[in-house]
């Protein structure tokens, strides 16, 4: 029996949205926190390269970031910061570095070679990807085990996330997407938004996305942002925090169902090829 590639069955989760300002970073942070509180080891990676913000939400001022990994003497351990002792770490990205938005294969290769040495220690690798459909966003989304698309009931959010789905589907042949509806008023709101997107995927692209859940609009969230602490710690009983907990449980089930298969998959897949 050969050695498994991913003995710990680490699950990589790309969190993306197409449209900006839909609460993607906050969801990535709080989902990570919720998973950590449930005794999982989590690495939250800010991959919103160019316009990174997770550090601000956490009230951290990291000295090094993703960009430093391109320097040969810098290791992944030096760049990572603990958010909570005991298994919740954070890997910051650089703000204001547009070159990182269009990382080429060589840059991604350098980055992932260094990261692969540390990724296996975590149960979850949460990748907060930037808005838009830059090549970096697309290829990291394609390299991850699962993709969580954050949408809101706004029509523009629906079209933007549909565009992301369509590009990933036609260029990389990806057909599994988990949908997370943010800023909803009710479960009915979640379902209506999901149905609209799901029917479009079914009708035009020929596959069904999976509903991961909905997260309600909650005044506790902006409060937590101002205080620079995760909502899950600031107001764990708030409606949004409860919803996020539910989503974390579902994410955990996804991993549980794939534990065996994950052992034979690298945490981040090979740099995908796509036909141009």
């Amino acid at each position: 029996m050969s050695q498994p590639i991913n003995p710990n069955s680490s699950l990589s989760v790309a969190i993306l949205s197409g449209k900006g300002g839909v609460g993607k970073t906050n969801l990535a942070l709080n989902l990570s926190y919720a998973l950590f509180r449930a005794s999982h080891r989590v690495l939250l990676m800010d991959f919103d390269v160019g316009l990174a913000n997770v550090d601000v939400l956490l009230g951290l001022s990291p000295e090094k970031n993703l960009q430093d990994l391109f320097r040969s003497e810098v290791t992944a351990d030096e760049v990572m910061l603990p958010v909570e002792a005991g298994g919740f770490d954070f890997l910051p990205a650089a703000s204001g570095v547009p070159e990182l938005l269009e990382m080429d294969d060589d840059m991604r290769e350098i980055l992932f070679q260094k990261l692969n040495s540390v990724l296996g220690a975590y149960d979850y690798l949460m990748l907060d990807l930037g808005a838009g459909i830059s090549q970096t966003v697309l290829s990291v989304a394609a390299m991850s085990h699962i993709r969580v698309l954050v949408v809101t009931p706004e029509p523009t959010s629906l079209t933007d996330s549909y565009a992301v789905i369509k590009v990933l589907h036609t260029q990389y042949g990806i057909s599994d997407f988990h949908i997370l509806v943010n800023q909803v008023d009710s479960p009915a709101d979640t379902q209506a938004t999901f149905n609209r997107l799901a029917t479009a995927c079914q009708h035009f692209l020929g596959f069904d996305p999976i509903l991961l859940g909905g997260v309600r609009t909650d005044p506790a969230l902006p409060d937590a942002v101002r205080r620079q602490v995760p909502l899950m710690r600031h107001a764990p009983r708030s409606p949004a925090a409860q919803d996020i907990l539910g989503v974390a449980v579902k994410l955990h089930r996804v991993r549980q169902n794939r534990l065996e298969a994950l052992q034979n998959m690298p945490v981040l897949g090979n740099i995908p090829e796509f036909d141009k």
Binding site: P155, L158, T159, Y162, A163, K166, V167, T170, Q171, R196, L197, T199, A200, H203, F204
Partner: peptide
């Protein structure tokens, strides 16, 4: 491009009508 989101797809996402 085949990745283009066409007008009928957008219309559907806005209105639910094909």
């Amino acid at each position: 491009e085949k990745t283009l989101v066409r007008a009928d797809e957008k219309r559907f996402l806005f209105t639910g009508l094909t």
